[in-house]
């Protein structure tokens, strides 16, 4: 079956979805969104790719081991928590502040984002592991 239309639309839409996911992730601290839903939406984009192409192709497009991704995500979340211990504050105490960066100017930064990044990576990894595993199974 010629899947030209599906694939073309996928090519266009995937980036929108991923961008939406990134938007959800970064907006999370101020508006609805956050690591969890952003991870799901990102995974949704990859699933769309899976629907349009086959597993092998998608794997060569995105050469990531999702199980490793879970580990990295957990390390991010845990590392953010442990980082607080270095400054003699309780586990998972976040720090935030305004920093002047070259080019970007006044930026407010928050360690909670790193924690959320961990959540994001775990959710992407988990969703993709489940879908891929079940999809590959005969």
């Amino acid at each position: 079956m010629n899947e030209l239309i599906l694939r073309t639309v996928t090519a266009v839409v995937t980036f929108m979805i991923i961008l939406f996911g990134i938007q959800l992730f970064f907006a999370g601290h101020y508006y609805p969104g956050g690591g969890f839903i952003a991870g799901l939406v990102t995974a949704g984009a990859i699933i769309l790719l899976l629907l349009a192409f086959d597993i092998k192709t998608v794997r060569s497009m995105i050469p990531i081991s999702y199980r490793t991704l879970i580990g990295i995500g957990l390390l991010f979340a845990l590392g953010t928590g442990l980082g607080g211990l270095l400054f003699d504050v309780p586990f998972l105490t976040h720090a935030h502040g305004h920093v002047m960066l070259p080019l970007l100017g006044d930026v407010s930064l928050h360690t909670a984002v790193l924690f959320d990044l961990g959540v994001y990576l775990v959710v992407v990894g988990v969703t993709m592991t489940i879908i891929e595993t079940i999809g590959e199974d005969e």
Partner: peptide
């Protein structure tokens, strides 16, 4: 430093729960 209270609770006030929920997912 957040305006989305739900998310602030999830990652900051009670980030400890979230840590283990992602463990559950993993």
């Amino acid at each position: 430093a957040g305006k989305n209270i739900v998310n602030v609770i999830l990652v900051d006030f009670r980030g400890f729960d979230t840590l283990f929920e992602i463990c559950v997912l993993a």
